[in-house]
Design a protein around this nucleic acid. Structure first.
Length: 109
DNA sequence: TCCTTGACGAGAT
DNA sequence: CATCTCGCCAAGG
């Protein structure tokens, strides 16, 4: 079996993330649910982590359940993520949180 | 193969 | 609000 026959097992997640509209955000847990894999939030984080640079998957639109950017540690893309979101019109409050009622997707209603 | 680490999350304290 | 526990599971040592 060639190394290519076994594609990345995270396509389900990437597909869902690709549908998040610009200016909107979603959570790791919600992505997992929408992908049909409830309780796999942690795996979504891993999927984004291994995403190659320059990927078309809008990883920056994924936040944790508190509406915050998950810390990545040294050399992380935390700041960059916030920048990308703000460019799309996403607002952060004084404590660095995004209001899901305003930018959350899918909309609850 | 065992053990530890995580871009996580919900619930209990 | 801050911790802690537990569920989950791919990766890397």
């Amino acid at each position: 079996m060639s190394v290519m026959t076994q594609m990345a097992p995270f396509e389900r997640f990437y597909s869902v993330i690709r549908t998040i509209p610009a200016g909107c955000v979603c959570t790791y847990g919600r992505i997992a649910e929408l992908a049909g894999m409830p309780r796999r939030a942690r795996l979504v984080g891993h999927a984004l982590k291994v995403l190659p640079d320059g990927s078309e998957v809008p990883w920056w639109r994924v936040l944790n359940s508190q509406g915050r950017i998950s810390a990545r540690g040294l050399g992380g893309s935390d700041e960059y993520q916030r920048l990308l979101l703000e460019e799309e019109g996403v607002a952060f409050d004084a404590s660095g949180r995004v209001d899901f009622r305003r930018h959350g997707w899918p909309r609850q209603d």
